[in-house]
C-alpha cells in the first residue's frame, strides 16, 4: 500500500474531493476542450487573460482522481502568471512526469505531489490532460485536444 500512497497523496485526494476553481466562467477570453479517450476523462478550461496575464482560470470536467486533482491544482498554480510562465510550468511538469529532466525545477511547488504518477505510465495522460488543454486555450486552438 505504500506505493499507492505515493500516487494517491492526501493533497491529490483532497483536490479530487473538492476541486478548486471548478465553475463555468462567464466572459472567458478563451476556452478549450480536452479529452482522454483511454478513460473517458473530459475537461474544459476557461481563461480570462488580460495583458498576457492569466487573471482568472476555471474548469469543468469529469475524470479520475488524478485528472481532477491535476486540473484543480493547475488552476491554482497558473493563476496570476503570464502565459509564458504557465507554458514554462507545463514544460517542467511534463518533464517531471516523463522523467526527462535531470533535476526538477523549484517552480513546481505543490505540483510535486504528482511525481508518483511517473511510476504509472498509463496514468501520465490523466495528469497532463489539463495542461494540454490549458495550452490549447492559451494558443486559442479551435480543435479538441486529445491525449492520443
Amino acid at each position: 500500500m505504500s506505493d499507492l500512497k505515493d500516487l494517491y497523496q492526501e493533497v491529490i485526494l483532497d483536490h479530487n474531493r473538492n476541486p478548486r476553481n471548478c465553475y463555468i466562467m462567464d466572459g472567458a477570453s478563451c476556452t478549450a476542450d480536452g479529452h482522454n479517450p483511454l478513460c473517458g476523462d473530459i475537461v474544459k478550461v476557461y481563461l480570462r487573460i488580460e495583458n498576457g496575464i492569466i487573471e482568472e482560470i476555471s474548469f469543468q470536467g469529469q475524470g479520475c482522481a488524478i485528472c481532477t486533482a491535476s486540473t484543480s491544482l493547475m488552476t491554482e498554480s497558473v493563476q496570476g502568471k503570464s502565459v509564458e510562465e504557465a507554458q514554462g510550468l507545463f514544460d517542467e511538469f511534463h518533464q517531471m512526469l516523463t522523467g526527462v529532466a535531470e533535476e526538477q525545477g523549484v517552480a513546481l511547488g505543490k505540483l510535486h505531489v504528482f511525481e508518483g504518477v511517473r511510476e504509472y505510465p498509463v496514468r501520465v495522460k490523466c495528469a497532463t490532460l489539463a495542461w494540454h488543454t490549458l495550452n490549447a486555450a492559451m494558443e486559442e486552438k479551435k480543435e479538441n485536444v486529445t491525449t492520443e
Partner: peptide, 22 residues
C-alpha cells in the same frame, strides 16, 4: 464517486487485472 480508472490502478497494485473504461 471513485473513478473506475483509479479502481483499476489500485487493483493492479494487488495483482488483480480488471478492465476500467467504457
Amino acid at each position: 464517486d471513485i473513478h473506475p480508472h483509479d479502481i483499476g490502478t489500485i487493483l493492479d497494485q494487488e495483482g488483480v487485472a480488471v478492465r476500467a473504461g467504457h
